[in-house]
């Protein structure tokens, strides 16, 4: 007989909240890249203005975790889950901040003529969002192997970042007038690279919830 049904229900609800936060952060990244691709300044502003909602959601999750720790004295896997939720909440909120950063760059770019057609940056964003979505699946399904696999995929994001860096450097060397525009795109790519790193941190927490071991998996080269 389960004797802490209420506690476990509350813990379950917190996990749902993490999914909601993850979805908000993922959507923010997606929107910021859409805004870049389509020069949609209105959408970029929406991402910037929406960031505080993401922050609030994270605080709400933290508060619920603190309440459970204070009132329920969680143990073992429940304790690891709550501690991990606190960490994952921070990671997701930071991913939201990267979307905010990208959106600010979009506004800076404004209506400047495009430097080049955007190919690798949207690809990087898609990959990052895909990793994020699957990391949260692994979190909910307690899938340790899944978490490890996703983490390993960070290399492909790093490779895209390398590629973008080289390409933009070539533009800048060939024509110094492109330096400002190229640097802005570098910032976008950098934000995405960091967001993918945050996903690997989430994966590490998933592994910790399940195995109880803190291990660094798929350390990013950046």
């Amino acid at each position: 007989m389960e004797i802490r049904a209420d506690f476990h229900k509350r813990l379950h609800n917190i996990k749902d909240d993490v999914l909601v936060l993850g979805s908000m952060s993922g959507k923010a990244i997606l929107n910021s890249i859409d805004a870049l691709r389509n020069r949609n300044l209105e959408l970029a502003k929406q991402v910037i203005e929406g960031d505080h909602i993401i922050n609030q959601k994270r605080f709400e999750i933290e508060e619920k975790c603190i309440q459970l720790i204070a009132t329920q004295q969680p143990m073992a896997s429940d304790l690891r889950m709550i501690v991990s939720v606190l960490n994952i909440g921070t990671e997701l909120e930071r991913i939201g901040d990267y979307a905010l950063g990208i959106s600010r760059v979009v506004i800076m770019i404004g209506d400047e003529p495009p430097l080049k057609p955007l190919i690798d940056i949207p690809r990087m964003a898609e990959k990052t969002i895909d990793m994020l979505r699957r990391s949260l699946d692994a979190f909910i399904n307690q899938d340790v192997e899944g978490a490890r696999e996703i983490s390993a995929e960070d290399d492909s994001v790093d490779n895209l970042y390398d590629q973008i860096y080289r390409e933009l450097l070539t533009f800048m060397i060939e024509d110094p007038k492109t330096i400002t525009r190229a640097t802005r795109l570098m910032w976008v790519a950098h934000n995405l690279e960091r967001a993918a790193d945050r996903v690997t941190n989430i994966c590490e927490r998933v592994v910790f919830v399940i195995t109880g071991k803190m291990e660094e998996i798929g350390a990013s080269k950046y």
């Binding site: 389960e2 004797i3 073992a76």
Partner: peptide, 19 residues
């Protein structure tokens, strides 16, 4: 024992999944 018990029965007991 209280953060990472090895035996599922310990885990179930200390997390209140059985009493």
């Amino acid at each position: 024992i209280f953060t990472n018990p090895r035996d599922k029965r310990t885990e179930d007991y200390i997390t209140g999944r059985f009493g």
